[in-house]
Design a protein around this nucleic acid. Structure first.
Lengths: 335, 335
DNA sequence: AACTACTACTAGAGCGCTCTAGTCACGAGC
DNA sequence: GCTCGTGACTAGAGCGCTCTAGTAGTAGTT
């Protein structure tokens, strides 16, 4: 349980200088194959691992990207995973800092700065545009999943308007005409998804029909109760996200309506819950891999090219077909 | 966008030595109040923040605790949050390393070791006891939420046996006699929960009745189908966790059975989903705050007292009453 | 006046690396 | 035989801090 071995220890055991050990461990040119294996053997013997902090101290570039994420958002978890792979491929390391009710976002950001991250990647941040701009003055700041306009801040997000359009077009192709949208109130993305729905309906010559909703299962369930009570003449519903859709489905399934026979339902996010066999929700999937890759790419150009301009990348979503959508009953009779 | 200011810059601006700046920023004795404010003012002017890595390099103690967690487990998210507060209170910093399908556990651990964390906190690790023991040779290793016996490894977990007992006793007190347990197959905690159920039933002079299950919503839903098909003569069900219980409820509610009138259901974990109004699941809650505090406390004694013995702390869970449990119909008639 | 005691400060080494500027040996080229 | 180039290696400074040892300067004691 004594302190971990240092480069000095390895050098002594292998009978070489510290610099040579450094060369070997960095895979840099300047050492013969024979010594290379000898040094590595010595290192292995001692269980040596280079001290990451010391290594970084000397270099100007830390190759460290700081990421803040919400510990409670499953979608952030998915993103973090793909960010790891994307960062690794580009030769960067990731430092994670969690945001939680008891740990504010600026707190999370500060701790990342203390570790001298070269760039900040913020997942769905709540910080004000001005706060974001202030941060962007000292290092690149990339926001994922929120449509913000802040000077010097790069944004990578899903085309939510297009996502809603996908959902509506899918329902139209099945023969639906009366399509309701249950929105996500004031939450990030809600406005775009609502707009996309409205535009797609208008484009098809139909009138949009919007019911207020929310983002949780409970909101979806409440919306279902209102829906059952009002029983509007619609054959399909698109919802703000999968969580709301799940709550909606749960309540609808307890009524006399059968899904998808009497009502088609489309969610948004393609969260793990949507894929579960007993839910099997048709939904709009965000392309997390593309989001992550674009983010790392932006970070990289920002860090290498000092006069790169602010980027705003929009990733197209895709539709995932499952079993909550089908042609409307009337269409089935007529067709 | 130039490199961040160093202690040297602050010292020059304030007209003092680097050492004095260090003293001021560490809040160490040895500086007059006048210089203290002067130095801090200079630091503020330059936007100075001490470089965390450099600071740690010189010290033997890094006061850094490494945490591995599963990015997809909501319960881990809750734990990480409370760990942050507990660590901060004890003067420690947390380094997070995510475990995901594409990023194995040993990988996550290695990256923490590269940052010279003083101790490793592993949330529900899948590593073998021998791998854990090997890790524990170079620094303290504390496992949360998994009952493992590995030399030198500390364990902090919830009393799952007691948790199951709580669930059963609650149902007994409502008047249930025929109680089924749907287990969690081979997943961590399943064995203890099953044993606890069995013991509580035997203690009440009743014969245990166990149906195989799993840990996901889909598993719960499947179990419900089997249940409806077999229609065993039971009035209450306890499940491995909330996710399975949710799937179970979802499917049961589509049948003619009404909950809790015809069947009482108890989950496990008190996850956020259990609290949602349309689910409102009676469940066994793990005390995350206690788990986190105990973990940090153990880390601290391990790091300060070289001959501390291996700790195994078991935290009692509590029962959260919601609306999926009620007296059995027969009891209602007889009582 | 000489001693200690204390406060306020500084010089400089050291943490574990990387990197520049060497040294040294050896063979090729003229 | 001399330079020159090259591959293999080393010395030592430096990254941004902390910490030990030490220096002034002031005040209190006898």
């Amino acid at each position: 349980m004594d302190r971990p071995p240092t480069m000095e220890d390895v050098a002594r055991l292998a009978g070489v200088s510290r610099a040579l050990v450094s060369i070997v461990y960095r895979d840099a040119p300047g050492a013969s194959d024979a010594t290379r294996t000898r040094v590595l053997a010595a290192g292995n013997d001692l269980g040596y691992r280079p001290d990451h902090r010391a290594r970084l101290l000397g270099r100007t570039r830390t190759r460290l990207l700081g990421v803040t994420f919400d510990v409670r958002a499953p979608f952030h978890g998915d993103l973090v995973e793909v960010l790891y792979s994307a960062a690794e491929a580009a030769g960067y390391d990731l430092a994670l800092s969690a945001v939680a009710p008891s740990r504010g976002e600026s707190r999370a950001v500060q701790s990342l700065l203390d570790y001298r991250c070269e760039a900040l990647i913020l997942l769905g941040p709540q910080l004000s545009p001005s706060a974001l701009s202030a941060l962007a003055e000292s290092q690149p700041v990339i926001v994922i999943g929120r449509k913000v306009r802040a000077a010097g801040v790069d944004v990578v997000r899903t085309d939510d308007k297009g996502g809603s359009r996908l959902a509506v077009e899918h329902l139209l192709s099945l023969g639906h005409r009366a399509i309701l949208h249950i929105d996500g109130a004031k939450f990030p993305g809600s406005a775009e998804r609502r707009t996309g729905y409205r535009a797609a309906m208008r484009h098809a010559g139909l009138s949009p029909f919007i019911q207020p909703g929310g983002r949780t299962e409970a909101d979806g369930s409440d919306a279902a109760k209102t829906f059952l009570n009002d029983s509007p003449p619609v054959t399909a519903v698109t919802l703000f996200n999968d969580r709301a859709a799940t709550g909606f489905l749960d309540t609808i399934r307890q009524s006399s309506l059968e899904i998808p026979r009497d009502l088609s339902v489309v969610g948004y996010d393609n969260s793990t819950i949507a894929a579960l066999s007993h839910i099997s929700l048709t939904t709009v999937a965000q392309n997390t891999t593309a989001l992550a890759n674009q983010t790392i790419a932006i970070a990289q150009t920002r860090l290498t090219d000092p006069n790169a301009t602010t980027a705003a990348v929009v990733i197209p979503p895709t539709l995932v077909l499952r079993s909550t959508t089908a042609p409307p009953r009337s269409a089935g009779c007529t067709g």
